[in-house]
């Protein structure tokens, strides 16, 4: 179990991490997600003990390790671009941690087990510079896990790999993590990586924690505008909440019906943002409704085919552009007049 309490880090006058707290349960895979410069790497390095926090504390398995140097924290860390020791073979890279941590038990068996796990047993005698980028990442994982650390930290470990390899490695990392059952904190700026791998995601922005939760929770119920905009795509409407028989958000040029449970106790009625996910939007050629209240007309301005589906941009009559997905079997073309509709209960109101 890892717990971070009120972590704050200043670099000179610059506030890099601002009072961040979170908790990862034993065996869970959590991801710190945010754009570059949001403080996620600083947080990770503070957990590792590589930098000293200005205030706040880090607890590993219930023990406050804030003043414990990194070499006594029993942490595994996978670096961006591997950081394998170039003067040691693969095997020596793994052996180093066992030796330095004073690992009790059979070092040989341990090295073999973890090289096997990352499918690199054949490369034990190679030097890191004889391996491909993907192979180096695998070794880097084995090296971080071989001495059975209390917690595994991943610092953007897939940076610099090509897309196909990244997607393969995601699944593999997740599988290994579950096999080893190690509490893991992963840092990335890649939202699809975060959503696909994690039990929990902690979104950070400008040094602050925005929201923490399961991937589906963050996607479906973002707590802040930042989370809504950073995770996934959406069309945004801004306006004031009007209290009529059912809640309506009045924008400059149109009105959007929102869920019945929306009221002014949750949002600032004078400044409401409404987000509609593209998969919630129906686009049809014919002017037929499916019972929704939110129905708009417009024309298609752009189509991007993504194989299994197409991403559409539709210019509504009031000038707003909405993004929607459609099945490619639907025969739509740029310039077509269409009807756009979505369910008030499926929009996000913040």
């Amino acid at each position: 179990m890892l717990e971070v309490k009120n972590l704050t880090k200043y670099y000179g006058d610059l506030l890099a991490v601002d009072d961040v707290s979170f908790r990862i349960e034993e065996g869970k895979f959590a991801t710190l997600l945010g754009p570059s410069g949001c403080g996620k790497s600083t947080t990770l390095h503070a957990i590792a003990g590589l930098i000293d926090a200005s205030s706040g504390s880090v607890h590993l398995r219930g023990k406050d390790v804030s003043d414990v140097p990194p070499y006594e924290r029993n942490i595994g860390l996978v670096f961006q671009h591997s950081a394998l020791f170039p003067h040691m073979t693969v095997e020596e890279n793994l052996r180093y941690g066992l030796k330095m941590q004073g690992f009790d038990g059979d070092h040989e068996a341990q090295i073999e087990k973890y090289l096997e796990m990352v499918q690199m047993l054949d490369h034990a005698d190679h030097k890191p510079d004889e391996l491909s980028g993907g192979q180096q990442r695998r070794i880097s994982f084995a090296r971080a896990l071989v001495y059975e650390p209390d917690i595994l930290l991943l610092d953007e470990p897939l940076t610099g790999l090509d897309r196909v390899l990244r997607e393969d490695m995601r699944n593999e990392i997740r599988a290994i993590q579950q096999e080893v059952d190690v509490t893991t904190l992963h840092v990335t700026h890649d939202q699809s990586e975060a959503l696909s791998m994690s039990d929990d995601v902690i979104v950070m922005s400008e040094g602050k924690k925005e929201q923490a939760g399961a991937p589906a929770e963050l996607y479906d119920e973002p707590a802040t505008e930042f989370v809504a905009e950073f995770l996934g795509q959406s069309t945004k409407f801004q306006g004031q909440l009007a209290e009529t028989s059912s809640p309506v958000v009045q924008t400059e040029s149109t009105e959007i019906h929102v869920g019945d449970d929306t009221d002014s106790s949750q949002v600032d009625p004078d400044d409401v943002s409404v987000y509609v996910r593209p998969e919630e939007i129906d686009v049809h050629q014919a002017a037929r409704t499916n019972g929704n209240i939110n129905v708009f007309t417009g024309s298609i301005s752009h189509i991007e085919y993504l194989g299994h589906r197409a991403e559409l941009e539709v210019d509504l009559d009031d000038g707003t552009t909405v993004t929607a997905f459609s099945r490619t079997s639907q025969e739509l073309a740029v310039g077509d007049d269409v009807t756009v509709q979505f369910d008030p209960d499926e929009v996000i109101v913040l």
């Binding site: 003990g49 990194p70 006594e72 029993n74 961006q80 941690g97 330095m100 090296r143």
Partner: peptide, 14 residues
């Protein structure tokens, strides 16, 4: 690459 030193310290070397 100073991260090599970080890696070493994480792995238990002072």
């Amino acid at each position: 690459d100073e991260r090599l030193e970080d890696a070493s310290m994480i792995m238990g070397a002072n």
